[in-house]
Design a protein around this nucleic acid. Structure first.
Length: 422
RNA sequence: GGAGAGUUGGCCGAGUAGGUUGAAGGCGCUCGCCUGCUAAGCGAGUAUACGGGCAUAACCUGUAUCGAGGGUUCGAAUCCCUCACUCUCCGCCA
């Protein structure tokens, strides 16, 4: 969410940012209502001031044993008017809030202007897609042949886009996220969090999933609770409505969680395999920092995520999302894409974003700076990494001609020393 | 799920027969004084949001906020209702 005052005073800046993202929303209504709000607020506050003054006087008179029926009568009428005006102001504020919550973040100046993913520049490429001396299989075929992933029964027991991992498949999934957590906590100094996988509505609004993207979420019927689409939600909301000690910044957290997504708009896309499931595992990196350091922290966070792929020996590239392809809450986003032989393409495995103060304002996450003044923190997060997609990439990139899969060396301690599946 | 007790500022903790209480007192913190060092002592300051004045600064000023939302009243931290959360006991369960 942008600041009401900022939008009021810089409508052309906001309008230009919206245009860059390809949005045609106008601010006319907002500006009109905002002016009305301030007018009415000023009026009602003056009325309240009078009520406070007179009420105090009545109190004094009463204490002195006197009565003031005419004053009481006048105040009764005034209070009635205040109530009316208060409701008008409240209605305006609610409407303004709805508009504000719907305005996406302003892209950082370093973000290239573009309309779709074809406009995303490639920042760097690591490793090389390896050639196979045989016809490589997609991971869903490997998973079934090795009897380590069961897609069919996932469909039977739950439904489309749910899977069972079994045996060494389950072990591999667990090995991958344990490896990621260990790497981030020990080498990158993130503090581990194990969050709730269910959050309330306020948390979903805080990180920007609601109110705009309700159809992407699983809501728990008969309650105000939602299944988390990413650990970003509970972990960022850890400090909602808090004022942090500036000395403690930056705060670095990493968290494993299952993630639940309705994938409402994804019909027909990535229907096979582990790439797009309603439930998947992910290790998330989250940072809270001072505004002046958030962009260097974004670079570091992205590198921390890349490190996982480097250690696993999986070829990847990093792209910078253009204005038209960026998420609603983000000011700047790098996507890390891993090479998937089955797609003959790089496929997103991590998304690292700086939200600046956009989430912090929604969630009221602030800190006290060196001068003792309260400032909004900047929040960042990135996948470090999506576990299922990592497993898919390992199976495909490490497959052998005989249908077995070599286990990357760094994972072997997590696999009981095993060096091969199959 | 049943019964009871709570929820006040960075923290602890007063305050409920409604009336200068944004809120005593203490701790912590900041600045100044004092002081061989440390400790102690003295003085001052120390919430946030949104308006108005104003340069979107400093500062001045208004309004709101004592878990959240409603209600009663000229006036509510204090009375009433609903909800959330915490604690204790019982039940249930991993």
């Amino acid at each position: 969410m942008l600041e009401m005052k900022f939008v009021r005073n810089n409508p052309q800046v906001v309008q230009a940012a919206l245009a860059k993202r390809g949005s045609s929303v106008t601010l006319d209504e907002f500006l009109k209502l905002e002016e009305q709000r301030r007018e009415k607020l000023f009026m009602v506050e003056q009325m309240k001031n009078r009520r406070n003054t007179v009420s105090e006087e009545i109190g004094k008179l009463k204490k002195a044993g006197q009565k003031a029926p005419d004053m009481v009568l006048e105040m009764r009428e005034l209070s009635r008017e205040i109530k009316e005006k208060d409701e008008e102001v409240k209605a305006l504020e609610e409407r303004l809030q709805v508009i504000l919550l719907d305005i996406p973040n302003i892209p950082h100046e370093s973000v290239p202007i573009g309309t779709s993913e074809t406009d995303n520049p490639v920042m760097r490429i690591w490793g090389e897609p390896c050639g196979f001396g045989f016809q490589p299989k997609p991971h869903w075929d490997l998973g079934e042949a090795l009897d380590i992933i069961d897609f069919e029964r996932g469909g039977k027991v739950t439904g489309a886009r749910f899977v069972f991992y079994k045996g060494l498949g389950a072990r591999l999934e667990r090995a991958v996220f344990n490896f990621m957590l260990d790497l981030h906590t020990t080498e990158h100094h993130y503090e581990e969090i194990f969050p709730p996988f269910i959050v309330n509505r306020d948390s979903m609004v805080g990180t920007g999933q609601l109110p705009k993207f309700a159809e992407d979420m699983f809501k728990i019927e008969g309650s105000d609770y939602y299944l988390i689409p990413t650990a970003e939600v509970p972990v960022t909301n850890l400090y909602r409505n808090e004022i942090l000690d500036g000395e403690k910044l930056p705060i670095l957290h990493c968290a494993y969680s299952a993630c639940f997504r309705a994938e409402a708009g994804a019909a027909g896309r990535d229907t096979r395999g582990l790439i797009r499931l309603h439930q998947f595992n992910k290790v998330e990196l989250v940072k809270f920092c001072r505004p002046e350091e958030s962009y260097t922290e974004l670079e570091k966070l992205t590198q921390n995520a890349e490190r996982v792929l480097q250690l696993l020996g999986l070829p990847y590239r990093v792209i910078l999302l253009c204005t038209g392809d960026m998420g609603f809450s983000s000011a700047k986003t790098y996507d890390i894409e891993v090479w998937l032989p089955s797609y003959q393409a790089y496929k997103e495995i991590s998304s690292c974003s700086n939200f600046e103060d956009f989430q912090a304002r929604r969630a009221s996450i602030r800190f006290r700076n060196a001068k003792g003044k309260v400032e909004l923190a900047h929040t960042l997060n990135g996948s470090g990494l999506a576990v299922g997609r990592t497993v898919a990439a390992i199976l495909e990139n490490y497959q052998e001609a005989d249908g077995t899969v070599t286990i990357p060396e760094v994972l072997r301690p997590y696999m009981g020393g095993l060096d091969r599946i199959g």
